[in-house]
């Protein structure tokens, strides 16, 4: 593929990545949030695939396929199951309302551009120029984690953080070793499984998954 196509594809996938993250902040319907998360997983896989094709690295392309299956299919499937068991399908009242969340997302994007300047300056290339996008996804994921009440949206926030970190790793390095990527993916899978069990238990105990119900558990 030519350099122009490569850069445009890179920009497209990165745009999809950050757009999915921002939309997670916007939507309150849990089903839509899981769909957006799945879309982001696909975008991440596409990003890795573009990088792999450009570098003529078959291993990277295979990794992209693996990431696509895990983040685009497997994890959303698990989340959907958890949701189906749960019933209530809407995010109740987030701690920060949607409009404010979107403004914050814009500020976080600004911050990540400011902060990654030295990283970009280290080796300017189309891939490193996209690094701020990955950092933005990490920050937005963290923000979701802080402001959303439902256990499921929290899990999605955590997974957004992980997606962002993975994207950052692929963008700033010339390919992550397979062992590392496999380890991280397994970790994420395990974390989601644990969180699912926790969600089920919470529902059994409190009849809901609002995390603030856990407040009485301290001391």
């Amino acid at each position: 593929m030519t350099e122009t196509v490569y850069v445009q594809l890179l920009d497209l996938t990165c745009g999809a990545l950050v757009l999915a993250a921002v939309l997670v902040l916007w939507r309150r319907d849990l089903r839509a949030i899981v769909r957006l998360f799945a879309a982001q997983g696909v975008a991440l896989a596409a990003l890795v695939a573009v990088l792999g094709v450009h570098a003529h690295d078959a291993g990277l392309v295979a990794l992209a396929a693996g990431a696509g299956v895990l983040r685009g299919l497997l994890l959303p499937l698990l989340l959907r199951r958890a949701m189906r068991a749960g019933g209530a399908g809407r995010e109740t009242e987030p701690l920060v309302n949607v409009a404010a969340s979107l403004v914050v997302a814009a500020l976080l994007a600004l911050l990540s551009y400011a902060v990654t300047r030295p990283v970009v300056a280290l080796e300017p290339s189309p891939a490193t120029h996209a690094a701020p996008v990955a950092v933005t996804v990490v920050l937005i994921g963290f923000f979701v984690l802080v402001t959303r009440r439902r256990a499921l949206s929290q899990v999605v926030g955590f997974l957004l953080v992980d997606n962002g970190i993975t994207a950052l790793a692929f963008l700033t390095t010339s390919g992550v070793p397979l062992a590392v990527e496999l380890g991280v993916s397994l970790d994420v899978l395990l974390a989601v499984l644990v969180l699912r069990v926790l969600t089920t238990r919470m529902r059994a105990a409190f009849g809901g998954t609002d995390l603030d119900d856990l407040r009485e558990l301290r001391d």
């Binding site: 963290f142 984690l145 802080v146 402001t147 603030d212 301290r218």
Partner: peptide
């Protein structure tokens, strides 16, 4: 005891 508050501390410190 609020999980959100603890996460918020982490987020604020990080940013």
């Amino acid at each position: 005891g609020s999980v959100h508050r603890y996460l918020g501390y982490g987020f604020c410190a990080f940013t």
